[in-house]
């Protein structure tokens, strides 16, 4: 069954994003919310790991949390899809289960 993983921690502070990406399976989704939106940026020390997950996992980032932190879409890694809260709900419905990497 597919899992939507939600991550809410900055990759520069906690290992939640890294640990999450180490446990995903092909066909899963990863949604970055709250401080985890920094994990969707280009040119950071965690960009390579996120980039590498792209081929097997759907990568999403919560737009309202990006906007709150002053992050424009052109700062994001290619292939990361921006969703709003309605899109968050759709993703939860689309994947079979949800796992929060608190």
């Amino acid at each position: 069954m597919s899992i939507l993983h939600t991550v809410n921690k900055s990759p520069f502070e906690k290992n939640a994003l890294s640990s999450c990406l180490g446990h995903t399976k092909s066909g899963d989704g990863v949604l970055l919310i709250e401080d985890a939106v920094y994990g969707a940026l280009k040119g950071t020390k965690s960009s390579d790991q996120v980039e590498a997950a792209k081929s097997t996992v759907g990568l999403y980032v919560l737009g309202p949390d990006l906007a709150a932190r002053g992050l424009a879409a052109d700062r994001l890694l290619d292939g990361v899809t921006v969703v709003d809260y309605g899109g968050f709900v759709d993703l939860v419905a689309k994947y079979d289960t949800t796992q929060a990497w608190l």
Binding site: D35, P64, G86, F88, V89
Partner: peptide, 19 residues
């Protein structure tokens, strides 16, 4: 923490989507 705000926004969106 932002968690309570995120949960509230998410809950509202769930209802708005008709779930």
């Amino acid at each position: 923490h932002q968690a309570a705000d995120s949960a509230y926004q998410f809950t509202k969106a769930v209802l708005e989507k008709g779930h």
